[in-house]
């Protein structure tokens, strides 16, 4: 008599270990949507709070925050923020496409994934090209 399978520890979904994220792009892009969303909400919103708050509190506070964002470390953080925001935005449009019933196939998942990554690169390059041109 075979031992009952149900007594084993079953993996809970969504699961981070069994999907071999290093080999398959679809689950990697999927969990990155969550991670970038959490990052934007937990960390990114603090940037917005600091920026708007400093502006409202007066000239000294605003100059300090603008100076921090314009420092080399600030630029690095802002670059990461643009990549994370554009990833979540473009992949969010991908999710809305699926919600409308389109591209819900293996080829659709792969094709929209590549399109999304190209959009992220394009938007990031566009943002920094415009931004650096305005600063220079």
């Amino acid at each position: 008599m075979p031992s009952p399978q149900s007594s084993r520890e079953r993996p809970l979904s969504p699961h981070l270990q069994v999907y071999q994220l290093y080999r398959k792009i679809a689950p990697l892009l999927s969990i990155l949507h969550r991670l970038t969303g959490v990052a934007l909400y937990v960390v990114g919103s603090l940037f917005v709070i600091a920026w708007l708050g400093a502006a409202a509190y007066g000239a000294g506070a605003f100059a300090t925050v603008q100076g921090l964002f314009a420092s080399p470390l600030g630029y690095l953080v802002l670059f990461g923020w643009t990549v994370v925001l554009f990833y979540h935005l473009a992949n969010g449009v991908r999710h809305l496409t699926w919600d409308s019933g389109r591209c819900v196939t293996n080829e659709g998942v792969r094709g929209t994934g590549i399109t999304m990554l190209v959009m992220v690169c394009g938007l990031t390059i566009a943002a920094w090209a415009v931004g650096l041109m305005l600063v220079a």
């Binding site: 502006a55 943002a127 931004g131």
Partner: peptide, 24 residues
């Protein structure tokens, strides 16, 4: 999500990049 597609793009390109180096 739908609202944040245009609003998010406006925030990056209009609000943040548009105010780079702005003073009080």
């Amino acid at each position: 999500a739908v609202a944040l597609v245009p609003l998010g793009l406006w925030f990056v390109f209009g609000a943040v990049i548009g105010n780079l180096g702005a003073d009080d």
